[in-house]
Write a protein that binds this DNA or RNA. Structure first.
Lengths: 360, 360
DNA sequence: CTCCAAATTGTAATCGATTACAAGGGCGAC
DNA sequence: GTCGCCCTTGTAATCGATTACAATTTGGAG
């Protein structure tokens, strides 16, 4: 009764396969890894035994022996953010053919999470790391860098000497947004800000402002509107920015937002207040997330090459892993694209006056 | 010159720690795993050595020895879908305290992905599996079930004898939607369908229809509008449904949609055609994803307890893992909640006539 | 026929932890 | 003083693969 024979469907090991095929475990391993080094008939024999046993090599054993896990840790601030899920897809499509899998480290899922990520790296459960969070996670005085694994940072530059950056050209994006709104005839502009001090926010804001100044707009006609400090680039932050925007005395006629979510929040608030988009105020977002297509009006935005960022970043990482990395990899900037859609319109001076004329 | 001393920052092993602390590796292992079984001073000694070496146990070695990876595979149809990212968070919050990590198997990131997932399970790289996809992935004639790991299915019931289901009460949701719209006075209803034949779609549709009939609405006044077959519960499918809805001769005044994304697509199309929501047509979605808050009007919807589904599912799985599972776990249905917001309104018979009266 | 290189396969060490079992030491009871 | 038990620690086997090295076979050249 306590006999376990025949009940525990114990997984087959390489020894089982070897026994069945009448060869040594070394031969089985070779037949699977490099069939060319084994006689064709033997390979066939082994394959047959593999099939018969339903054998799949145990990955823990392989990892231990080879000292490689074929896994990459990807640290994302929030998995619910569309932006990151597209970057992730790009990462995956580049990594999969090279035999690497992805472990997602989601920062927003649990507070104590940071230390779990660090553990993962130090326990050698991954071979390399991709950061989408713009900083280097750490805990208990250790940071991810000290694990000594190859790291690249995507979407937000870190500027660490040993960590290549791959991201969209935020400076160009800000500049282009400034030029675009100015070219539509707007003379008073606002910037709905992201988290103050973040590299990304700074890049977009300074260049936006610079472009506006260059287009002849007065310094005091370019106002920076803060959002909700804690809420980063989110929708709720955009609503807060919207409230502040409405309170500006001589209200700007166009807003450049640090993200699409911010733009959505802001649009919601200003439209509730009775303003028309783009009639009374033009809005431009940043990112190009899918949701902007669902809006009415469809949001004009600076599209980041999300999937491309992921793909390029993964390629850089693969080069670091096989030692063929070049200095060119260290800082890659990918172009953004202005999508002019329905939330922006040329500014007509004194539209109300004209309206009155029509009526009168 | 070929001397490697001092350059390769080789990761410390348990042997290094043991040597430094002047004890055996067994003692180090015990001091870390169950400190109570080791003299306090020895523990202190070991801890000091651990700190000095910067030691973290190698997880591959541990996995091999213990035959457990402390990892769970979660199969999701698309990581970009908000619905799933919230379920994932629920899963993670329940799994993390038990010492389990999550590996996300994203079905939409690569076509050949299915076989990678199966490999993962057979290679014993995970201890258990959570399915969010509503079916059992397989490849090369093997399915995930055959790996012999504990499995639970979330969000969409599979009905497999060895796989517990945890999902929202779709039947109740459909029923409640039907009752709600009827109670608002609507006498002609439409259902914007999800993928035909899927368990989820069937449950929502049949119960919606049943509730409408029970409320005295005629059978021919309840029309099912198909979306885009390939596009599942998505926005584009909703747009297709919207076109078909517009083409209905004696057009219904309210639509119940199989998902929020479908509702968004449909709303976009019908509003483009000049109809007002909720003035001309009321719309109810299903899921309760964040994006519906961003809409104008805010969408009325049946909210699924997303995070709760994930949490409960993970708890069931943990019970299967430690052998304390009960039959009650086999099929769990969580209640949905009707969120009545801005996209639904009572139906006023002949509103145009009344409008004329006011003017006349 | 002999000899050497190439091709093929086997033997056994190895990766780094966990843990069963053995062994040593301390202490109280008799 | 001796015995036995408990507490603590060490020795060595083990998990399941990969791979360096050795051994054997094969085939061709001379």
């Amino acid at each position: 009764m306590s006999d376990k024979t025949g009940q525990g469907a114990r997984t087959a090991t390489i020894a089982d396969v070897a026994a069945r095929a009448g060869v040594s475990t070394a031969t089985v391993s070779r037949a699977l890894a490099k069939p060319d080094s084994v006689r064709a008939e033997t390979v066939a024999l082994v394959m047959e035994a593999v099939r018969a046993c339903g054998y799949t090599p145990n990955s823990s054993a392989r990892m231990l022996r080879t000292q490689r896990t074929q896994m990459v840790l990807v640290v994302v601030p929030s998995i619910a953010n569309q932006m990151y899920s597209h970057v992730l897809r790009g990462v995956d499509t580049a990594l999969a053919p090279a035999g690497y899998g992805v472990i997602i480290g989601n920062l927003d899922s649990a507070p104590g999470n940071q230390s779990r990520l660090v553990e993962l790296a130090f326990a050698r459960q991954v071979d390399a790391i991709i950061l989408l969070c713009g900083y280097i996670p750490g805990s208990h005085g250790r940071t991810l860098v000290e694990a000594g694994l190859p790291i690249v940072s995507l979407c937000a530059p870190i500027g660490h000497p040993s960590i290549p950056d791959v991201c969209a050209d935020d400076e160009a994006g800000g500049r282009e947004a400034g030029r675009f709104l100015a070219s539509l005839g707007h003379r008073r502009l606002a910037y709905a800000a992201g988290p103050k001090g973040s590299v990304v926010d700074t890049a977009r804001w300074t260049q936006f402002r610079a472009a506006a100044l260059a287009a002849g707009i007065a310094d005091h006609d370019i106002v920076r509107v803060e959002g909700d400090a804690g809420a980063r680039f989110s929708f709720v932050s955009g609503m807060a920015a919207g409230e502040r925007f409405l309170a500006i005395p001589d209200r700007p006629t166009a807003v450049f937002c640090a993200s699409d979510e911010i733009a959505m929040g802001l649009m919601k608030v200003v439209r509730r207040a009775g303003l028309r988009v783009p009639g009374d105020v033009s809005v431009v977002g940043f990112d190009g997330i899918d949701q902007v297509d669902y809006l009415d009006p469809v949001l004009s935005t600076m599209r980041q090459p999300r999937q491309e960022i992921g793909r390029r970043g993964a390629e850089v990482l693969l080069r670091m892993l096989d030692g063929t990395s070049t200095p060119d990899d260290h800082a890659i900037r990918l172009p953004v694209e202005l999508l002019s859609r329905e939330s922006t319109a040329p500014w007509r001076p004194a539209p109300r006056a004209r309206l009155k004329d029509v009526r009168g």
